[in-house]
Amino acid sequence: MEDRVILVDEHDAEIGTAGKLAAHVDGRLHRAISVFLFDAAGRLLLQQRAAGKYHSAGLWSNTCCSHPRPGEPRAAAARRRLREEMGIDCALEEQFGFVYRAVLPNRLIEHEYDYVYFGRFDGSPTPAPEEVARWSWMDLARLRAELKARPDAYTYWLGDCFEHVTRSFETGWVLR
């Protein structure tokens, strides 16, 4: 059975549900979550998306991304998918939300009201191989340079929200 996503308007008011793939084919605005885990040194845990993912396969991205299920709180979805994708369970804090739209090379459309969560993790993940090909810790300065030099190696949404992430991280988020 296909996962369903929560369709929203530009103010994040729920307007219905759709199959996940159908929402990406039609480009309908839907709710999403993105998780960024930092270690004690301030490095970000990145994942390389598995080759079998239906979009953005093989690209590097933030720690975890997904969609809340209908009726599922955003924070619960973020923790659930972090466990499922990366084998990590840790406290998360919502930082901000933003809307983005991107037409992907396979003609799917990412049009998401994305809520970004930060967390602290010092360890090694145990990712699900069907979700994650590899993982790596990277400091934000190096990632900024990489996003400029090789944007095609990273997911669109990572590049789109990176400056918001660095501002939140550098101006007030406290590693716990």
Rank of each mutant, 00 (worst) to 15 (best):
R120H: 14
S66Y: 14
A102R: 05
P70C: 01
D39L: 08
H111G: 06
G16F: 01
G42S: 11
V165S: 00
N62G: 13
T63S: 10
F118P: 08
A51P: 04
R134H: 11
A102Y: 11
R81Q: 15
E130A: 14
A50Q: 08
H67P: 04
E2K: 06
H24F: 11
G19P: 02
T17C: 01
E2W: 08
R142F: 08
H111Y: 07
A13S: 07
Q47R: 13
E131H: 13
E10P: 00
M86N: 11
C65E: 15
P125E: 04
G97C: 07
A18Q: 07
D26C: 14
T155M: 03
G19S: 03
V8R: 01
E130I: 05
V35K: 08
Y54N: 08
L92D: 08
H67A: 14
V25S: 05
H11R: 14
H55I: 14
D122A: 11
R79S: 14
E10H: 01
F38P: 09
I88E: 02
S34D: 15
E163F: 04
D122E: 13
L175N: 10
K148W: 09
K53F: 11
I6G: 11
P70V: 02
T171L: 06
G19R: 00
G119E: 05
L45G: 05
M86F: 04
L108D: 04
E14L: 10
E14K: 04
H164W: 02
R150H: 12
A50S: 15
L147A: 01
A75D: 11
V25R: 14
H111A: 02
A102N: 11
V132A: 09
A32F: 11
E84V: 07
T17V: 13
L59V: 04
S124H: 10
V99M: 08
L45N: 06
L45A: 04
F169V: 03
E93Q: 10
D26V: 13
D122K: 09
I88A: 05
A50D: 10
Y113M: 05
D89S: 11
A102L: 05
R142V: 10
R176I: 11
A57S: 14
E112L: 00
I109V: 15
K53T: 12
Y113F: 07
F96S: 00
D160A: 15
